[in-house]
Design a protein around this nucleic acid. Structure first.
Lengths: 161, 161
DNA sequence: ATAATTAAGTCAATATGGCTGACCTAAATA
DNA sequence: TATTTAGGTCAGCCATATTGACTTAATTAT
């Protein structure tokens, strides 16, 4: 069955080639996050802190609710990480117009760390995609986008308004 | 500085666009792994078990050492997960020619689970890349490949010999 | 033949990042 | 006024990773 399918399938879509994509995603994602991980380790932070810093940097005055929607974790999980970031003055909290809400912002210290971490990843991506055509890069982005579940595509659009 | 750089940089390479790639990787990778995660949860396994099953399925008779090289975790971490997989009969162990080594293989039960998990991801990838040109798909794979660190590129090649 | 190296395993302690459930306050809205 | 929403907190649990120290058995090098 699988063999017959493969015979009728273009080369780049057969099981073996698709499995390579699984592996490429695994290896590429792991190495992509390893740079920031090393810096974070020095200050006793983890990837969870990075994500919070990244998205607060991305969208200044983001609320807890919005952040939870982006990160897709529970508020209890966010709370531990966020409290550390606030108490160590990487993030400051202010009250929103709706007084039930809170707005998060990076402090100067937070911006500095955000920049340090993102720069590693930005440089890595730029170095790689620099060698490819605009067509290839757009294809790359579109394929990644299509791999996102519908619900989260909306989130991606929202944070890129 | 950053602004000046951006003015001199092609659109698809400027900071804002590159940051989108960071986010796309985050969202895409998360949703890519969420399917298997749900199945694994039911049998009290996690992503770590999936990785072991995947790579044992990929390379029959893989040794512990090779597996550790692929997964880049410590043997203590592997041990817990692997022992569970062996005691629950998803994986069987035999002794290598070099009697210090062990060779790992999937049992029928293991193959069935491997197939169930991989099928989800294979279908997802195929569904997505089906809509793209061969040129785009090859570009996608090459870009991912270039994002892998040199040392791990070798590993990727080795498991795809 | 002996020494050194290698493959694998194990014990113990620790950190991180998730989770659930239960419960609370204050503010906004119906 | 009642309900919903945003946010917080306590307690306990689980999975996945880490480090360090130590062991055994087999292979390889001297």
């Amino acid at each position: 069955m699988a063999d017959l399918n493969n015979l009728l399938t273009p080369f780049f879509l057969n099981d073996k080639e698709v499995r390579k994509v699984i592996e490429l995603l695994f290896f590429a994602y792991r190495d992509f996050t390893s740079g920031p991980d090393k810096i974070l380790e020095k200050i006793n932070f983890g990837r969870a802190h990075h994500r919070v810093i990244y998205f607060v940097g991305k969208k200044n005055h983001i609320t807890i609710k919005e952040l939870l929607r982006v990160l897709q974790i529970t508020k209890q999980s966010l709370s531990r990480v966020l409290n550390q970031l606030v108490s160590e003055k990487f993030i400051i909290v202010s009250t929103g117009l709706d007084k039930r809400t809170k707005k998060l912002s990076l402090t100067e210290k937070g911006k500095k760390l955000e920049n340090e971490l993102s720069t590693i990843q930005i440089k890595k991506i730029r170095k790689v995609i620099n060698e490819f055509s605009e067509e290839n890069i757009n294809g790359f982005k579109k394929i990644l986008y299509e791999m996102i579940d519908e619900y989260n595509k909306k989130t991606f659009q929202e944070i890129n308004d």
